[in-house]
Structures are given as C-alpha cells and as structure tokens.
Computed example of a mutant assay.
Amino acid sequence: MGTKPLRIGTRGSALALAQAHETRARLMQAHALPEEAFEIVVIKTSGDQIQDRPLSEVGGKGLFTKEIEEAMLDGRIDLAVHSSKDMPTVLPEGLILSAFLPREDVRDAFISPKAKRLQDLPQGAVVGSSSLRRQAMIKRLRPDIDVVMYRGNVQTRLRKLEEGVVDATLLAYAGLKRLGLSEVVTSLLEPEEFLPAVGQGAICIESRENDGETLRLLAAIHDPVTQIRLDAERAFLAVLDGSCRTPIGGLALLDGEKISFRGTVLKPDGSEVHSVERQGAVAEAAVIGREAGEALKAMAGPGFLTD
C-alpha cells in the first residue's frame, strides 16, 4: 500500500458502519496493517434521505448505491461496502463486485411484544415492514392482519415498535447480529416457509475494475462460497426484475460440489405465488440461477411482474 490511507465508502447508518468496520478489521488482520491505513468515508445516499414513501415508487435499489458509486468513479473513495441485497444487478461501467465476506445467517427475524411467532399474532394486528417481499409473504401467511409501510434504520424501527406504532416487525437477523442486537429477536422465520431476499446476510465490496492494488488487498478477505451462492441468486434476480418493485425471494445453498436453489415470486397482496427449485454443479451457479428465473417467469406469465 502507498502512504495514503485506503478509503472505504459506506452509508452512515449504524448497520452500514458496522459492516464497514468489519471489512476494515478483516483487511487489517489479513495484511497486518494498522487502523490508520484505512479511512472510513460516510456518504449520504438518496435512499437514506427519502423516508416518507416506498423506495419502489422512487427508483428502487440504486438509491442506496448511486452516490457511493459516483464517489468511487470520481476517485474520492477506493472501495465501497454494501449489503448485497441492496445491490442492483447491473453495475456502472468500470465498477465490479470484487469481494464477498463470509455470509451471516440468512433468516428473517420476527420481533414483537404481543406474540411469540407471526402465526400467533391476534387477528387485526398491525405489522410494519418496508420490504415488498416481507409484506407479501406476511399477507400470504396471515391475510387477516394489517401490514403497513415502515421505513427507517434498525434503531428507528425498534423504537417505533416499543412506542406501539405497530404490533410487530420483521428484520434481517444478520443485521441484528452485526449490531449486537440478537436479544431483541422474538423468533426466527425458517427459509422453508419464508424465503429471504436475494443476497440477505452477505456483505459485498465494490471497487474499480482497473484498481489492481485494491483488488489485491481484497482478494485476501474474499469468501468464494458466498460468491458462488450470490452468483446464482443475482442471476435469478437479474432475469426477473432486479429492482424493488416485485416481491421476490431467493436462496442458494452449497453441499460439496452441488448447489441447490429455491426462488419465489409473489403478488404484492400475497394472493398468488409461484416457486421454483433447481440443483446442479457449483460451476454452473449463475446458469442455474438464470434458468430458475426464466422458469419462474414462464410460470407466472406475462404481466405478473409488471402489474
């Protein structure tokens, strides 16, 4: 490394900062470097500023990455740390996903002072969620409860829950673990009945394609297993939509040299659901994800993804 610190770009939420700090700690350990060899640069994104309406109405996932990617293309930062589930499937020219950290638990966490599980909530209970996938899956399992839009960072959502704004909420268990908040979880939703978002629980690192020195540093902390799983999941998402406008779940699992993939797409009100499963060789991860997406698209029929 040169004399200048490596600049790590991130959003400013507590979770985003925890992910940036984890990345820095792994780089420090891998290369025996001091903390001052790195600078964490906080960048405010459009997604952080828009709190009053669903992101699907104002541009989807790119709202959490656009300003950070501009800073990287301008040379103001050297790499960016993201939640993989926030990443659009198409990146700006010149930027690549250059590393994935080992994936955390992929499950969704149910949090409520009123019931032990989602199934146990009383009729007419109010559940807050900003995720179209979670909203649709909740409505599918419990059409008798009210699901409301619920934006804000993890701490804001937990505070609103404490204040009684809603009776329950769902959050990614991985994020709660990274924030040291596992104790707030009431119960966990298993992927068999509640498929996670594509990339849930995985931290990805984006950098410039031609920045050889940064790519060399990142190679030491890259987890190839997470990348293989994400190759399948992101290929699946790219076929279907890739933005935030459709409730989509997808999860790839590895068993030796085999990969298995499950994907699902729902109507926003949970009234209709289509699911697909595929297995194959690890080397075919992206092909398997793409084929699963095409199969689901054919199953759902024209209009399902655009209604």
Rank of each mutant, 00 (worst) to 15 (best):
H31M: 00
E35M: 04
F38A: 13
V41S: 09
I43R: 04
I43K: 01
T45K: 03
S46V: 11
G47K: 04
G47C: 06
D48C: 02
Q49Y: 01
I50K: 14
I50N: 03
I50V: 15
R53E: 13
R53F: 07
R53V: 05
S56L: 09
V58C: 05
V58N: 08
V58S: 07
V58A: 08
K61N: 15
G62A: 08
F64E: 08
F64H: 03
T65N: 09
T65A: 10
K66S: 12
K66E: 14
E67F: 06
I68F: 14
I68H: 15
M72W: 08
M72E: 09
L73V: 06
L73M: 05
L73W: 06
R76M: 00
I77C: 11
I77L: 05
D78Y: 00
L79R: 05
A80Y: 03
H82F: 04
S84F: 03
M87W: 11
P88M: 02
V90S: 13
V90G: 08
L91S: 15
L91W: 13
P92G: 02
E93H: 11
L95Y: 15
L97V: 15
L97R: 15
A99K: 12
F100T: 08
F100E: 12
L101W: 12
P102T: 12
E104Y: 09
D108Q: 13
D108H: 10
D108M: 09
F110G: 10
S112M: 05
A115D: 10
R117V: 00
D120I: 00
L121R: 06
Q123P: 06
G124K: 09
A125F: 01
A125Q: 07
S130N: 06
S131P: 00
S131F: 02
